[in-house]
Computed example of a mutant assay.
Amino acid sequence: METLLYAAELVREDGAYKLVVQDVVRDTVQVTPVPESAVARLPVFLSVLSSKLGPASAGGRR
């Protein structure tokens, strides 16, 4: 059985990006500004992370 622990969204508002992370267990939310350059590199970062964690986690939630 899966249990959702965190939920994350990358949001663009008025041309600025922010990462919104909800801690479902503790019912808290953190918001952090994210530079556009980091947003552009996000697919590469996720690919590297998946390759380091191995095939069991590569599929992830969709």
Rank of each mutant, 00 (worst) to 15 (best):
M1E: 00
E2S: 08
E2T: 10
T3K: 06
T3D: 06
L4A: 03
L4P: 04
L5H: 07
L5F: 10
L5R: 08
Y6T: 03
A7N: 08
A7M: 09
A8Y: 11
A8W: 10
A8H: 11
A8N: 13
A8Q: 13
E9F: 03
E9Q: 03
E9C: 02
V11Y: 15
V11Q: 15
V11P: 15
R12V: 06
E13I: 05
E13F: 06
E13T: 04
D14M: 05
D14H: 05
D14E: 05
D14Q: 06
D14V: 05
G15A: 00
G15P: 01
A16L: 02
K18D: 01
L19G: 00
L19E: 00
L19I: 01
V20Y: 07
V20G: 08
V21Q: 00
Q22F: 10
Q22S: 09
D23H: 04
D23F: 06
V24C: 03
V24M: 02
V25F: 15
V25D: 13
V25K: 14
T28G: 02
T28I: 03
V29P: 11
Q30G: 14
Q30H: 12
V31E: 06
V31Q: 07
V31I: 12
V31Y: 08
T32C: 13
P33M: 07
P33F: 10
P33R: 10
V34H: 11
V34C: 14
P35I: 15
P35A: 14
P35G: 15
E36V: 09
E36G: 11
E36M: 11
E36T: 09
A38E: 13
V39D: 07
A40S: 11
R41V: 02
L42H: 15
L42Q: 15
P43T: 11
P43F: 10
P43H: 08
P43I: 08
V44G: 05
F45A: 10
F45I: 10
